[in-house]
Nucleic acid binder design. Structure first.
Length: 457
RNA sequence: GUGGUUUUAGCUCAGUUGGUUAGAGCGUCUGAUUGUGGUUCAGAAGGUCGUGGGUUCGAGUCCCAUAUUCCACCCCA
Protein backbone atom coordinates (compact mmCIF):
# COMPACT_ATOMS: atom_id res chain seq x y z
CA UNK A 1 0.00 0.00 0.00
CA UNK A 2 1.27 3.43 -0.87
CA UNK A 3 1.10 5.92 1.95
CA UNK A 4 -1.55 8.14 0.31
CA UNK A 5 -4.61 6.60 -1.26
CA UNK A 6 -5.14 7.28 -4.95
CA UNK A 7 -8.27 9.18 -5.85
CA UNK A 8 -10.10 10.75 -8.77
CA UNK A 9 -11.18 14.37 -9.14
CA UNK A 10 -14.37 15.58 -7.53
CA UNK A 11 -17.49 14.78 -9.50
CA UNK A 12 -15.86 12.10 -11.69
CA UNK A 13 -16.41 8.36 -11.49
CA UNK A 14 -14.95 5.00 -12.43
CA UNK A 15 -17.26 2.60 -14.23
CA UNK A 16 -16.89 -1.08 -13.38
CA UNK A 17 -17.89 -3.90 -15.74
CA UNK A 18 -21.43 -4.24 -14.44
CA UNK A 19 -21.94 -0.48 -14.72
CA UNK A 20 -20.44 -0.39 -18.19
CA UNK A 21 -22.75 -3.16 -19.37
CA UNK A 22 -25.69 -1.15 -18.12
CA UNK A 23 -24.40 2.12 -19.53
CA UNK A 24 -23.80 0.49 -22.89
CA UNK A 25 -27.36 -0.72 -22.83
CA UNK A 26 -28.49 2.90 -22.53
CA UNK A 27 -26.09 4.18 -25.18
CA UNK A 28 -27.04 1.38 -27.53
CA UNK A 29 -30.76 2.08 -27.17
CA UNK A 30 -30.35 5.80 -27.78
CA UNK A 31 -28.02 5.25 -30.71
CA UNK A 32 -30.39 2.78 -32.30
CA UNK A 33 -33.30 5.20 -32.11
CA UNK A 34 -31.19 8.07 -33.46
CA UNK A 35 -30.19 5.96 -36.43
CA UNK A 36 -33.75 4.86 -37.05
CA UNK A 37 -34.55 8.52 -37.63
CA UNK A 38 -31.67 9.02 -40.03
CA UNK A 39 -29.18 10.76 -37.76
CA UNK A 40 -25.50 10.22 -38.46
CA UNK A 41 -22.69 10.09 -35.91
CA UNK A 42 -19.90 12.61 -35.50
CA UNK A 43 -17.35 13.22 -32.78
CA UNK A 44 -15.49 16.36 -31.86
CA UNK A 45 -12.42 16.87 -29.64
CA UNK A 46 -12.68 16.89 -25.86
CA UNK A 47 -10.94 20.25 -26.01
CA UNK A 48 -12.05 23.30 -27.92
CA UNK A 49 -10.33 26.65 -28.16
CA UNK A 50 -11.59 29.05 -25.53
CA UNK A 51 -12.69 31.35 -28.32
CA UNK A 52 -15.21 28.72 -29.35
CA UNK A 53 -16.44 28.10 -25.83
CA UNK A 54 -16.46 31.46 -24.06
CA UNK A 55 -19.53 33.66 -24.18
CA UNK A 56 -21.85 30.91 -25.41
CA UNK A 57 -23.36 29.85 -22.12
CA UNK A 58 -23.79 33.14 -20.35
CA UNK A 59 -21.74 34.46 -17.48
CA UNK A 60 -22.54 31.45 -15.30
CA UNK A 61 -21.49 29.07 -18.03
CA UNK A 62 -18.12 30.72 -18.51
CA UNK A 63 -17.37 30.18 -14.84
CA UNK A 64 -18.13 26.49 -15.18
CA UNK A 65 -15.70 25.93 -18.03
CA UNK A 66 -12.66 23.78 -17.31
CA UNK A 67 -9.68 25.57 -18.79
CA UNK A 68 -6.57 23.76 -19.91
CA UNK A 69 -3.21 25.24 -19.03
CA UNK A 70 -1.01 26.03 -22.01
CA UNK A 71 1.83 23.63 -22.62
CA UNK A 72 5.42 24.59 -21.99
CA UNK A 73 6.25 27.85 -20.28
CA UNK A 74 2.70 29.02 -19.79
CA UNK A 75 3.80 31.92 -17.62
CA UNK A 76 5.94 33.53 -20.29
CA UNK A 77 3.28 36.07 -21.30
CA UNK A 78 2.46 36.99 -17.72
CA UNK A 79 4.10 40.02 -16.16
CA UNK A 80 4.59 40.50 -12.42
CA UNK A 81 2.05 43.33 -12.65
CA UNK A 82 -0.59 40.95 -13.99
CA UNK A 83 0.00 38.68 -11.03
CA UNK A 84 -0.18 41.52 -8.54
CA UNK A 85 -3.44 42.75 -9.98
CA UNK A 86 -4.88 39.31 -9.45
CA UNK A 87 -7.45 39.64 -12.23
CA UNK A 88 -8.21 35.95 -12.58
CA UNK A 89 -10.25 36.27 -15.74
CA UNK A 90 -7.58 38.24 -17.55
CA UNK A 91 -4.82 36.03 -16.24
CA UNK A 92 -6.61 32.90 -17.39
CA UNK A 93 -6.69 34.12 -21.00
CA UNK A 94 -2.94 34.59 -20.84
CA UNK A 95 -2.08 31.14 -19.56
CA UNK A 96 -4.86 29.13 -21.21
CA UNK A 97 -6.21 28.99 -24.72
CA UNK A 98 -8.11 25.69 -24.61
CA UNK A 99 -10.98 24.36 -22.56
CA UNK A 100 -12.93 21.11 -22.10
CA UNK A 101 -16.22 21.08 -23.95
CA UNK A 102 -19.21 22.17 -21.88
CA UNK A 103 -21.87 20.66 -24.11
CA UNK A 104 -22.15 19.14 -27.57
CA UNK A 105 -24.28 21.81 -29.22
CA UNK A 106 -21.70 24.56 -29.46
CA UNK A 107 -18.96 22.25 -30.78
CA UNK A 108 -21.52 21.03 -33.30
CA UNK A 109 -22.27 24.58 -34.42
CA UNK A 110 -18.53 25.09 -34.82
CA UNK A 111 -18.32 21.85 -36.76
CA UNK A 112 -21.12 22.85 -39.11
CA UNK A 113 -19.50 26.18 -39.91
CA UNK A 114 -16.12 24.59 -40.45
CA UNK A 115 -17.45 21.78 -42.63
CA UNK A 116 -20.26 23.66 -44.34
CA UNK A 117 -19.05 22.70 -47.80
CA UNK A 118 -19.10 18.97 -47.06
CA UNK A 119 -22.51 18.96 -45.42
CA UNK A 120 -25.79 18.36 -47.20
CA UNK A 121 -28.61 20.22 -45.49
CA UNK A 122 -30.78 19.48 -43.68
CA UNK A 123 -28.08 17.74 -41.68
CA UNK A 124 -29.05 15.31 -38.96
CA UNK A 125 -26.23 14.31 -36.68
CA UNK A 126 -25.95 12.56 -33.38
CA UNK A 127 -23.07 12.71 -30.97
CA UNK A 128 -22.48 10.70 -27.81
CA UNK A 129 -19.52 11.98 -25.83
CA UNK A 130 -18.57 13.21 -22.38
CA UNK A 131 -18.78 16.88 -21.43
CA UNK A 132 -17.27 18.65 -18.43
CA UNK A 133 -18.59 21.30 -16.11
CA UNK A 134 -16.87 22.74 -13.04
CA UNK A 135 -20.17 22.65 -11.19
CA UNK A 136 -20.59 21.64 -7.58
CA UNK A 137 -21.54 17.97 -7.67
CA UNK A 138 -24.84 16.70 -6.35
CA UNK A 139 -27.09 13.76 -6.93
CA UNK A 140 -27.47 13.33 -10.68
CA UNK A 141 -25.02 16.14 -11.23
CA UNK A 142 -21.46 15.35 -12.17
CA UNK A 143 -18.41 17.22 -13.39
CA UNK A 144 -17.89 14.71 -16.15
CA UNK A 145 -20.96 13.25 -17.77
CA UNK A 146 -22.15 11.93 -21.09
CA UNK A 147 -24.56 13.72 -23.34
CA UNK A 148 -26.31 12.03 -26.24
CA UNK A 149 -27.26 14.75 -28.69
CA UNK A 150 -29.36 14.61 -31.84
CA UNK A 151 -29.70 17.81 -33.84
CA UNK A 152 -31.03 18.66 -37.24
CA UNK A 153 -29.65 21.81 -38.74
CA UNK A 154 -30.73 23.65 -41.87
CA UNK A 155 -34.48 23.10 -41.65
CA UNK A 156 -37.21 25.30 -40.19
CA UNK A 157 -39.87 22.63 -40.34
CA UNK A 158 -41.72 21.95 -37.11
CA UNK A 159 -41.75 18.29 -38.08
CA UNK A 160 -38.26 18.25 -36.62
CA UNK A 161 -39.49 19.43 -33.24
CA UNK A 162 -42.23 16.82 -33.20
CA UNK A 163 -39.82 14.17 -34.39
CA UNK A 164 -37.41 14.92 -31.56
CA UNK A 165 -40.27 14.49 -29.13
CA UNK A 166 -41.00 11.20 -30.81
CA UNK A 167 -37.36 10.17 -30.46
CA UNK A 168 -37.42 11.00 -26.76
CA UNK A 169 -40.66 9.08 -26.41
CA UNK A 170 -39.26 5.99 -28.09
CA UNK A 171 -36.01 6.01 -26.16
CA UNK A 172 -37.78 6.12 -22.82
CA UNK A 173 -40.41 3.62 -23.83
CA UNK A 174 -37.66 1.22 -24.85
CA UNK A 175 -35.85 1.76 -21.57
CA UNK A 176 -39.15 1.29 -19.68
CA UNK A 177 -38.87 4.70 -18.02
CA UNK A 178 -42.10 6.58 -17.48
CA UNK A 179 -41.60 10.20 -18.45
CA UNK A 180 -43.45 13.43 -19.04
CA UNK A 181 -42.49 15.39 -22.14
CA UNK A 182 -42.63 19.12 -21.56
CA UNK A 183 -42.81 21.74 -24.23
CA UNK A 184 -42.47 25.48 -24.14
CA UNK A 185 -41.70 28.19 -26.67
CA UNK A 186 -39.35 31.11 -26.37
CA UNK A 187 -41.59 33.22 -28.57
CA UNK A 188 -44.51 32.78 -26.18
CA UNK A 189 -42.31 33.85 -23.29
CA UNK A 190 -41.07 36.78 -25.36
CA UNK A 191 -44.64 37.73 -26.19
CA UNK A 192 -45.65 37.65 -22.54
CA UNK A 193 -42.74 39.87 -21.58
CA UNK A 194 -43.57 42.23 -24.45
CA UNK A 195 -47.26 42.47 -23.65
CA UNK A 196 -46.70 43.39 -20.03
CA UNK A 197 -44.14 45.99 -21.03
CA UNK A 198 -40.99 44.24 -19.82
CA UNK A 199 -39.53 42.82 -23.00
CA UNK A 200 -36.08 42.63 -21.42
CA UNK A 201 -37.18 40.59 -18.43
CA UNK A 202 -38.05 37.23 -19.94
CA UNK A 203 -35.61 35.38 -17.73
CA UNK A 204 -36.73 37.08 -14.54
CA UNK A 205 -40.36 36.36 -15.29
CA UNK A 206 -39.76 32.70 -16.11
CA UNK A 207 -37.47 32.06 -13.17
CA UNK A 208 -40.06 33.51 -10.79
CA UNK A 209 -42.94 31.64 -12.41
CA UNK A 210 -41.00 28.40 -12.17
CA UNK A 211 -41.18 28.60 -8.39
CA UNK A 212 -44.99 28.57 -8.24
CA UNK A 213 -45.17 24.96 -7.02
CA UNK A 214 -42.46 25.50 -4.45
CA UNK A 215 -43.33 28.87 -2.88
CA UNK A 216 -46.90 29.71 -3.92
CA UNK A 217 -48.50 32.53 -5.84
CA UNK A 218 -47.95 35.30 -3.27
CA UNK A 219 -44.23 34.66 -3.04
CA UNK A 220 -43.98 34.47 -6.81
CA UNK A 221 -45.55 37.90 -7.09
CA UNK A 222 -43.20 39.20 -4.42
CA UNK A 223 -40.26 37.84 -6.35
CA UNK A 224 -41.51 39.38 -9.59
CA UNK A 225 -41.73 42.70 -7.84
CA UNK A 226 -38.23 42.27 -6.44
CA UNK A 227 -36.98 41.57 -9.93
CA UNK A 228 -38.28 44.93 -11.10
CA UNK A 229 -41.66 44.05 -12.58
CA UNK A 230 -44.22 46.77 -11.86
CA UNK A 231 -47.57 46.13 -10.22
CA UNK A 232 -49.65 46.57 -13.36
CA UNK A 233 -47.52 44.07 -15.24
CA UNK A 234 -47.77 41.57 -12.40
CA UNK A 235 -51.53 42.05 -12.48
CA UNK A 236 -51.57 41.23 -16.18
CA UNK A 237 -49.40 38.16 -15.57
CA UNK A 238 -51.83 36.54 -13.14
CA UNK A 239 -53.91 34.60 -15.68
CA UNK A 240 -50.70 33.25 -17.19
CA UNK A 241 -49.03 32.27 -13.94
CA UNK A 242 -52.12 30.39 -12.81
CA UNK A 243 -52.77 28.74 -16.12
CA UNK A 244 -54.70 25.48 -16.06
CA UNK A 245 -56.51 22.90 -18.12
CA UNK A 246 -55.47 20.96 -21.18
CA UNK A 247 -52.73 22.09 -23.53
CA UNK A 248 -55.30 23.46 -25.98
CA UNK A 249 -57.09 25.33 -23.21
CA UNK A 250 -53.87 26.80 -21.95
CA UNK A 251 -52.88 27.98 -25.42
CA UNK A 252 -56.30 29.52 -25.90
CA UNK A 253 -56.02 31.45 -22.64
CA UNK A 254 -52.51 32.64 -23.48
CA UNK A 255 -53.75 33.62 -26.91
CA UNK A 256 -56.21 36.08 -25.37
CA UNK A 257 -53.44 37.77 -23.42
CA UNK A 258 -51.01 37.79 -26.31
CA UNK A 259 -53.40 38.95 -29.03
CA UNK A 260 -51.45 42.15 -29.63
CA UNK A 261 -48.04 40.46 -29.73
CA UNK A 262 -47.02 39.22 -33.14
CA UNK A 263 -44.14 37.21 -31.70
CA UNK A 264 -46.31 35.68 -29.02
CA UNK A 265 -49.00 34.61 -31.47
CA UNK A 266 -46.34 33.05 -33.66
CA UNK A 267 -45.13 31.04 -30.68
CA UNK A 268 -48.65 29.84 -30.02
CA UNK A 269 -49.13 28.83 -33.64
CA UNK A 270 -45.84 26.93 -33.61
CA UNK A 271 -46.74 25.15 -30.43
CA UNK A 272 -50.18 24.19 -31.71
CA UNK A 273 -48.55 22.77 -34.81
CA UNK A 274 -46.03 20.73 -32.81
CA UNK A 275 -48.88 19.31 -30.73
CA UNK A 276 -50.81 18.47 -33.89
CA UNK A 277 -47.83 16.69 -35.45
CA UNK A 278 -47.06 14.84 -32.23
CA UNK A 279 -50.57 13.48 -32.22
CA UNK A 280 -50.16 12.19 -35.76
CA UNK A 281 -46.91 10.52 -34.75
CA UNK A 282 -48.64 8.69 -31.93
CA UNK A 283 -46.40 9.71 -29.08
CA UNK A 284 -47.13 7.53 -26.05
CA UNK A 285 -45.78 9.58 -23.15
CA UNK A 286 -47.81 12.47 -21.78
CA UNK A 287 -46.94 15.73 -23.49
CA UNK A 288 -47.67 18.98 -21.74
CA UNK A 289 -47.21 22.68 -22.24
CA UNK A 290 -45.08 24.13 -19.46
CA UNK A 291 -44.41 27.84 -19.54
CA UNK A 292 -41.88 27.62 -16.72
CA UNK A 293 -39.29 25.82 -18.84
CA UNK A 294 -36.48 28.30 -19.08
CA UNK A 295 -33.63 25.95 -19.87
CA UNK A 296 -31.17 27.13 -22.47
CA UNK A 297 -32.92 30.45 -22.75
CA UNK A 298 -29.63 31.95 -23.82
CA UNK A 299 -29.78 30.53 -27.28
CA UNK A 300 -33.13 28.85 -27.82
CA UNK A 301 -35.41 30.90 -30.06
CA UNK A 302 -38.44 28.69 -30.58
CA UNK A 303 -39.48 25.41 -29.01
CA UNK A 304 -37.99 24.39 -25.67
CA UNK A 305 -38.13 20.72 -24.77
CA UNK A 306 -37.55 18.99 -21.49
CA UNK A 307 -38.17 15.45 -20.31
CA UNK A 308 -38.65 14.54 -16.68
CA UNK A 309 -38.81 11.05 -15.25
CA UNK A 310 -42.03 10.29 -13.43
CA UNK A 311 -41.82 8.74 -9.92
CA UNK A 312 -38.23 9.87 -9.36
CA UNK A 313 -36.79 13.01 -7.89
CA UNK A 314 -34.13 13.85 -10.43
CA UNK A 315 -33.35 16.80 -12.63
CA UNK A 316 -34.41 16.55 -16.23
CA UNK A 317 -33.11 13.51 -18.10
CA UNK A 318 -33.34 15.15 -21.48
CA UNK A 319 -33.54 18.69 -22.81
CA UNK A 320 -33.44 20.59 -26.06
CA UNK A 321 -34.94 23.17 -28.32
CA UNK A 322 -34.79 25.33 -31.43
CA UNK A 323 -31.96 27.76 -32.00
CA UNK A 324 -32.31 29.97 -35.03
CA UNK A 325 -28.86 31.40 -35.35
CA UNK A 326 -26.34 29.40 -33.38
CA UNK A 327 -23.87 29.18 -36.24
CA UNK A 328 -24.13 32.93 -36.71
CA UNK A 329 -21.63 33.42 -33.89
CA UNK A 330 -19.13 31.46 -35.97
CA UNK A 331 -19.79 33.40 -39.14
CA UNK A 332 -22.56 31.42 -40.81
CA UNK A 333 -25.84 33.28 -40.23
CA UNK A 334 -29.34 32.27 -41.20
CA UNK A 335 -29.14 28.56 -40.45
CA UNK A 336 -31.72 27.23 -38.04
CA UNK A 337 -31.28 24.13 -35.94
CA UNK A 338 -33.20 22.14 -33.40
CA UNK A 339 -31.81 19.50 -31.10
CA UNK A 340 -32.24 17.33 -28.09
CA UNK A 341 -29.79 16.05 -25.51
CA UNK A 342 -30.12 12.94 -23.37
CA UNK A 343 -28.29 12.84 -20.04
CA UNK A 344 -27.04 9.27 -19.98
CA UNK A 345 -25.79 9.44 -16.40
CA UNK A 346 -29.09 10.65 -15.06
CA UNK A 347 -30.95 8.05 -17.07
CA UNK A 348 -28.65 5.51 -15.44
CA UNK A 349 -29.41 6.87 -11.97
CA UNK A 350 -33.15 6.82 -12.66
CA UNK A 351 -33.03 3.26 -13.93
CA UNK A 352 -30.98 2.14 -10.96
CA UNK A 353 -33.38 3.77 -8.53
CA UNK A 354 -36.39 2.19 -10.23
CA UNK A 355 -34.69 -1.19 -10.63
CA UNK A 356 -35.17 -1.14 -14.40
CA UNK A 357 -32.00 -2.86 -15.55
CA UNK A 358 -32.60 -6.30 -16.99
CA UNK A 359 -30.56 -8.91 -15.15
CA UNK A 360 -29.10 -10.08 -18.45
CA UNK A 361 -26.89 -7.02 -18.46
CA UNK A 362 -24.87 -8.44 -15.56
CA UNK A 363 -22.42 -10.35 -17.78
CA UNK A 364 -21.87 -10.89 -21.47
CA UNK A 365 -20.28 -14.36 -21.26
CA UNK A 366 -22.62 -17.16 -22.25
CA UNK A 367 -20.46 -20.25 -21.85
CA UNK A 368 -17.56 -21.15 -19.57
CA UNK A 369 -15.29 -24.13 -20.17
CA UNK A 370 -13.84 -25.76 -17.09
CA UNK A 371 -10.09 -26.25 -17.22
CA UNK A 372 -8.69 -29.67 -16.22
CA UNK A 373 -5.23 -29.10 -17.68
CA UNK A 374 -3.31 -31.48 -19.93
CA UNK A 375 -5.09 -33.22 -22.79
CA UNK A 376 -8.48 -32.16 -21.45
CA UNK A 377 -7.37 -28.54 -21.64
CA UNK A 378 -6.61 -28.96 -25.33
CA UNK A 379 -10.08 -30.32 -26.01
CA UNK A 380 -11.63 -27.47 -24.05
CA UNK A 381 -9.69 -24.86 -25.99
CA UNK A 382 -10.82 -26.43 -29.24
CA UNK A 383 -14.42 -26.58 -28.03
CA UNK A 384 -14.24 -22.91 -27.04
CA UNK A 385 -13.11 -22.04 -30.54
CA UNK A 386 -16.05 -23.88 -32.08
CA UNK A 387 -18.49 -22.10 -29.78
CA UNK A 388 -17.09 -18.70 -30.69
CA UNK A 389 -17.31 -19.56 -34.37
CA UNK A 390 -21.00 -20.14 -33.82
CA UNK A 391 -21.28 -16.68 -32.27
CA UNK A 392 -21.41 -17.62 -28.59
CA UNK A 393 -19.51 -15.50 -26.08
CA UNK A 394 -17.20 -18.09 -24.62
CA UNK A 395 -14.66 -18.07 -21.84
CA UNK A 396 -12.01 -20.64 -21.13
CA UNK A 397 -11.03 -20.74 -17.47
CA UNK A 398 -7.32 -20.02 -17.69
CA UNK A 399 -5.98 -22.14 -14.81
CA UNK A 400 -6.32 -25.74 -13.79
CA UNK A 401 -7.88 -24.65 -10.52
CA UNK A 402 -10.20 -26.58 -8.25
CA UNK A 403 -13.48 -27.33 -9.95
CA UNK A 404 -15.32 -25.72 -7.10
CA UNK A 405 -13.45 -22.50 -7.69
CA UNK A 406 -14.18 -22.54 -11.40
CA UNK A 407 -17.87 -23.07 -10.78
CA UNK A 408 -17.93 -20.28 -8.22
CA UNK A 409 -16.38 -18.06 -10.83
CA UNK A 410 -19.11 -18.94 -13.34
CA UNK A 411 -21.70 -18.34 -10.69
CA UNK A 412 -20.43 -14.92 -9.65
CA UNK A 413 -20.27 -13.81 -13.27
CA UNK A 414 -23.73 -15.24 -13.86
CA UNK A 415 -22.57 -17.30 -16.80
CA UNK A 416 -25.58 -19.40 -17.81
CA UNK A 417 -23.78 -22.47 -19.20
CA UNK A 418 -20.71 -24.46 -18.17
CA UNK A 419 -19.07 -27.20 -20.21
CA UNK A 420 -16.98 -29.83 -18.47
CA UNK A 421 -14.35 -31.83 -20.33
CA UNK A 422 -12.41 -33.95 -17.85
CA UNK A 423 -10.71 -37.30 -18.09
CA UNK A 424 -13.98 -39.27 -18.26
CA UNK A 425 -15.32 -37.05 -20.98
CA UNK A 426 -12.13 -37.28 -22.96
CA UNK A 427 -12.17 -41.08 -22.92
CA UNK A 428 -15.88 -41.41 -23.70
CA UNK A 429 -15.95 -38.57 -26.21
CA UNK A 430 -19.05 -37.10 -24.59
CA UNK A 431 -18.95 -33.77 -22.75
CA UNK A 432 -21.01 -32.43 -19.90
CA UNK A 433 -23.18 -29.36 -20.40
CA UNK A 434 -24.49 -27.80 -17.22
CA UNK A 435 -27.29 -25.26 -17.02
CA UNK A 436 -26.29 -22.97 -14.16
CA UNK A 437 -29.77 -21.61 -13.65
CA UNK A 438 -31.55 -24.92 -13.16
CA UNK A 439 -28.55 -26.97 -12.04
CA UNK A 440 -29.37 -29.66 -14.60
CA UNK A 441 -26.62 -31.22 -16.63
CA UNK A 442 -26.43 -33.67 -19.50
CA UNK A 443 -23.65 -35.79 -20.96
CA UNK A 444 -23.69 -35.90 -24.76
CA UNK A 445 -21.62 -35.62 -27.89
CA UNK A 446 -20.02 -32.23 -28.59
CA UNK A 447 -22.26 -31.69 -31.62
CA UNK A 448 -25.36 -32.17 -29.50
CA UNK A 449 -24.09 -29.59 -27.04
CA UNK A 450 -23.51 -27.09 -29.84
CA UNK A 451 -26.98 -27.50 -31.29
CA UNK A 452 -28.57 -27.46 -27.84
CA UNK A 453 -26.83 -24.19 -26.98
CA UNK A 454 -27.81 -22.62 -30.29
CA UNK A 455 -31.41 -23.52 -29.64
CA UNK A 456 -31.43 -22.18 -26.10
CA UNK A 457 -29.61 -18.87 -26.45
C1' G B 1 -19.51 30.90 -6.02
C1' U B 2 -22.73 31.09 -0.80
C1' G B 3 -24.70 28.16 3.42
C1' G B 4 -25.13 23.30 5.54
C1' U B 5 -23.99 17.85 5.59
C1' U B 6 -21.19 13.19 5.13
C1' U B 7 -16.58 10.28 5.64
C1' U B 8 -15.05 4.02 10.65
C1' A B 9 -13.12 -3.41 7.13
C1' G B 10 -14.08 -4.60 -0.10
C1' C B 11 -19.74 -2.87 0.71
C1' U B 12 -23.81 -1.05 4.18
C1' C B 13 -23.44 0.81 8.88
C1' A B 14 -22.89 0.60 14.87
C1' G B 15 -19.37 2.81 18.32
C1' U B 16 -22.45 5.83 25.16
C1' U B 17 -20.28 12.31 28.92
C1' G B 18 -13.06 11.65 25.48
C1' G B 19 -10.80 5.91 28.90
C1' U B 20 -7.72 -1.08 27.90
C1' U B 21 -6.77 -4.83 22.26
C1' A B 22 -12.57 -0.27 17.47
C1' G B 23 -17.63 -4.04 16.40
C1' A B 24 -21.90 -6.26 13.29
C1' G B 25 -24.18 -7.89 8.76
C1' C B 26 -23.01 -8.82 3.82
C1' G B 27 -18.88 -9.97 0.71
C1' U B 28 -13.85 -12.40 0.31
C1' C B 29 -10.67 -16.64 1.49
C1' U B 30 -10.10 -21.79 3.74
C1' G B 31 -12.36 -26.36 5.16
C1' A B 32 -16.75 -29.88 5.69
C1' U B 33 -17.31 -31.84 -0.19
C1' U B 34 -9.63 -34.66 -3.74
C1' G B 35 -15.12 -33.95 -10.73
C1' U B 36 -19.66 -29.38 -9.59
C1' G B 37 -21.58 -23.09 -8.14
C1' G B 38 -25.95 -20.73 -5.94
C1' U B 39 -28.29 -23.26 0.32
C1' U B 40 -26.11 -24.85 5.18
C1' C B 41 -22.16 -25.41 8.96
C1' A B 42 -17.09 -24.39 11.03
C1' G B 43 -13.00 -21.18 10.81
C1' A B 44 -9.72 -17.16 8.97
C1' A B 45 -8.01 -12.78 6.83
C1' G B 46 -9.16 -7.69 6.42
C1' G B 47 -9.16 -0.95 9.73
C1' U B 48 -2.47 4.07 11.26
C1' C B 49 -11.33 5.48 12.09
C1' G B 50 -10.73 10.62 4.74
C1' U B 51 -5.93 13.53 5.21
C1' G B 52 -2.77 17.10 7.98
C1' G B 53 -2.22 19.86 12.33
C1' G B 54 -3.85 21.05 17.50
C1' U B 55 -6.05 20.38 22.73
C1' U B 56 -5.39 16.34 26.44
C1' C B 57 -2.18 11.89 30.94
C1' G B 58 -5.28 9.73 26.98
C1' A B 59 -8.88 11.39 20.64
C1' G B 60 -12.90 7.27 16.15
C1' U B 61 -15.19 10.88 19.82
C1' C B 62 -13.27 17.87 21.11
C1' C B 63 -10.92 22.28 17.99
C1' C B 64 -8.69 24.20 13.19
C1' A B 65 -7.42 23.43 8.12
C1' U B 66 -8.05 20.53 3.73
C1' A B 67 -10.19 16.75 0.53
C1' U B 68 -14.57 14.10 -0.52
C1' U B 69 -20.05 12.94 -0.48
C1' C B 70 -24.84 14.58 -0.31
C1' C B 71 -28.51 18.84 0.35
C1' A B 72 -30.40 23.99 -0.47
C1' C B 73 -29.43 28.49 -3.49
C1' C B 74 -27.53 29.56 -8.47
C1' C B 75 -27.50 27.04 -12.76
C1' C B 76 -28.09 22.68 -15.38
C1' A B 77 -28.01 16.58 -18.48
Amino acid sequence: MSSNKPSIPKGTRDFSPIEMNRRNHIFFTIKKVFEQFGYQPIETPAMETLGTLLGKYGEEGDKLLFKVLNSGDFLSAVTPDDLREGNATRLSTQISEKGLRYDLTVPFARYVVQHRNEITFPFRRYQIQPVWRADRPQKGRYREFFQCDADVIGSDSLINEAELLQIADQVFVQLSIKVVLKLNNRKILGGIAEVIGHADKITDITVAMDKLDKIGIDKVNEELSARGIDALAIERLQPIIQLGGSNAEKLEQIGKVLAESEEGMKGIAETLEVFRLSEIMGIQSPLELDLTLARGLNYYTGAIIEVKAADVSMGSVCGGGRYDNLTGIFGLPGISGVGISFGADRIYDVMLELNLFPSATASSTQVLLVNFGGKEEQLSIQMAGRLRTLGLNTEMYPDNAKIKKQFSYADSKQIPWVIIIGENERTTGTYILKNMKTGEQQTTAPEMILSHLLKNL
